[in-house]
């Protein structure tokens, strides 16, 4: 369990070693404060959607899941993509309404990012990896927390570095996104050193 968590945060960081959620990652890493807000939103949505998708996967889609209805031969795994994305879209929508109703202050801080999360591939990628690696419910909760924390950590680190780099004198063509890529590459190199920490 600790192994899954540490691997998901460090060595198998979704952003730095699987390139997931890159579009938002680069767009929202200009300021540390917004990066922290988005990071928190990703952790929250990830921890809800991955275990939910785990339940859907093992009780509706897995081979033989409909055995109790007398249909032991069903294998609906080809539907997993569309059910996962539907589940994520619905969760994000519900989360938005709940937060708006009960935590208005949090909503003003996160509101902008929530709809974006539907198309953040770190969220969908987390669910797909969970299904590929056949985690059970407990493992999937730990894995979701790990991937969420890892993604938020990478985002916050990049945002802090980019805030400092605004004062650096870089070649014109490299300014902005080009430099962000190179910095992310260096961070990714740094994080790959953590491979094996989990054992």
């Amino acid at each position: 369990m600790t192994g899954i968590f540490l691997d998901a945060v460090l060595a198998e960081n979704l952003a730095l070693s699987f390139f997931l959620g890159m579009c938002t990652f680069l767009a929202v890493s200009r300021k540390l404060s917004t990066a922290l807000g988005l990071g928190a939103a990703v952790i929250a949505v990830q921890v809800v959607t991955v275990p939910l998708n785990n339940l859907v996967h093992s009780y509706l889609l897995a081979p033989g899941a409909w055995g109790w209805l007398g249909l032991p031969d069903t294998d609906l795994r080809f539907l997993r993509l569309i059910t996962f994305i539907g589940m994520i879209a619905a969760t994000v929508q519900v989360a938005e309404m709940v937060i708006d109703r009960f935590f208005p202050r949090l909503y003003t801080a996160l509101g902008l990012f929530l709809p974006l999360l539907t198309v953040n591939c770190a969220i969908l990628g987390g669910s797909l990896f969970m299904a590929d690696r056949q985690y059970d419910l407990g493992e999937s909760i730990v894995y979701a927390a790990g991937t969420g924390v890892g993604w938020a950590l990478a985002l916050a680190a990049l945002a802090a570095i980019r805030e400092r780099l605004t004062y650096a004198d870089v070649p014109e063509g490299l300014r902005g996104v080009g430099l962000a890529f190179v910095v992310t590459g260096l961070m990714s190199m740094g994080f790959s050193v953590f491979a094996g920490v989990a054992q």
């Binding site: 390139f19 890529f181 992310t184 790959s192």
Partner: peptide
Amino acid sequence: APSAFILLG
């Protein structure tokens, strides 16, 4: 992974 980031940059 890091080489992809740097090459794209």
